[in-house]
Computed example of a mutant assay.
Amino acid sequence: MRARAWLALAPALIAALSTAAIAAPRPRLASINVCTDQLLIALADPDQILGLSPYARDAAQSYLAAQAGRFPKLSGEAEDVLMLKPDIVVGGRYTRRATREFLKQQGQRVVEFDAARTLDEARAQITMMGDLVGHPDRAAAANARIDAAIARARKATSDKPFRVLPLERRGWVSGSGSLITSLLATVGLVNAADGLGIRLGGFASLEAVVSLRPDYLLVSEASDFAEDEGRAFVLHPALEGLFPPSKRLTIPENLTVCGGPMLADALDRLTTELTRLER
């Protein structure tokens, strides 16, 4: 009789446990890094986000700067994070160490993300944040978008492995160990920075870039206006002569500063640029 009674109650117990699991509140988080800001905005519910880093609204660094305006802006110090009493603090492993250590000493759970240097690392971080905020389905969808964008970009590339030099203000070059390199390599392009001996990133002289003669430059702006000396480097007559618009790929910097769902947009922009150059 007792066995029958338990069997009769089993479906109700399972349903009750399932309902309790669904009803369990998801964690509330604060972010102290511009890259974890964007992962949170893309994957968490708005009411899970208690505050974002000081750079969350900087459109030059964050692709989701406009959306970040909905959330409190933190100072970057530990004190205002502690006042919010988040369940979890997320940040970069290179975010101020003193801040991270102080938060840990105060009993705060701090989850640290490395700087993503490959598409695989970026996808893994999307999955990690999706699990952290309780939305693995959103993370899976974001990664599927990236995979679809990779497939589109590969169709747009030539069989020839063009040498592309990522060149920014004042001659900054993203090297072979960067996320930019992973993006290029994934679609069959080669980062020409190896020819300059630059691994993660570094400054190159105008003479070095001219001597290298890559097939294309990868820049973050298509504008021909030099608002300062940093921008003037990229628009130097020697470079404009060798690399007119038909020899420049343009991808906004805020699409590649961090690893996250915005990489799908970066790849689609690369596809558009490659298609433009082939016409």
Rank of each mutant, 00 (worst) to 15 (best):
G134P: 05
H135L: 06
H135F: 14
D137H: 14
R138H: 14
R138N: 05
R138Q: 12
A140I: 07
A141E: 12
A141M: 08
A142F: 09
N143G: 09
N143R: 14
A144T: 09
I146W: 06
D147F: 08
A148I: 09
A148F: 09
A149G: 07
A149H: 12
A149M: 09
A149E: 04
I150H: 04
R152M: 10
A153L: 04
R154F: 10
R154A: 07
K155W: 03
K155Q: 11
T157V: 13
T157E: 02
T157K: 08
D159I: 11
D159W: 13
F162Y: 15
R163H: 11
R163N: 06
V164S: 04
L165P: 00
L165Y: 02
L167E: 00
R169I: 06
R169M: 06
R170N: 13
W172F: 15
W172D: 00
W172G: 03
V173L: 11
S174R: 11
S176P: 00
S176R: 10
S176W: 02
S176M: 07
S178W: 04
L179K: 07
I180Q: 04
I180E: 03
I180W: 02
S182K: 09
L183N: 05
L183R: 05
T186N: 11
V187S: 07
G188I: 03
L189W: 01
L189V: 00
N191P: 00
A192I: 00
G195R: 10
G195A: 08
L196F: 03
G197I: 01
I198D: 03
I198W: 04
L200W: 12
L200C: 06
L200K: 13
G201A: 11
G201E: 08
F203P: 01
L206D: 01
E207C: 12
E207S: 12
A208N: 10
A208Q: 12
A208I: 01
A208G: 07
V210L: 04
V210I: 10
S211I: 01
L212R: 14
Y216N: 04
L217H: 05
L217E: 01
L218D: 00
S220A: 15
S220T: 13
S220W: 03
S220H: 12
A222F: 07
S223I: 09
D224K: 14
F225N: 13
F225G: 01
A226W: 12
A226I: 05
E227A: 15
E227F: 15
D228F: 13
D228Q: 13
E229L: 15
E229V: 08
E229K: 14
E229S: 14
G230A: 07
R231C: 05
R231H: 13
F233W: 10
F233P: 01
V234H: 05
V234K: 03
L235S: 08
H236N: 15
P237Q: 13
P237G: 10
A238W: 09
A238N: 11
L239S: 09
E240S: 15
E240M: 15
E240F: 09
G241S: 13
L242C: 06
F243Q: 02
F243C: 06
F243A: 03
P244H: 13
P245C: 06
P245A: 12
S246H: 14
K247Y: 07
R248V: 01
L249F: 08
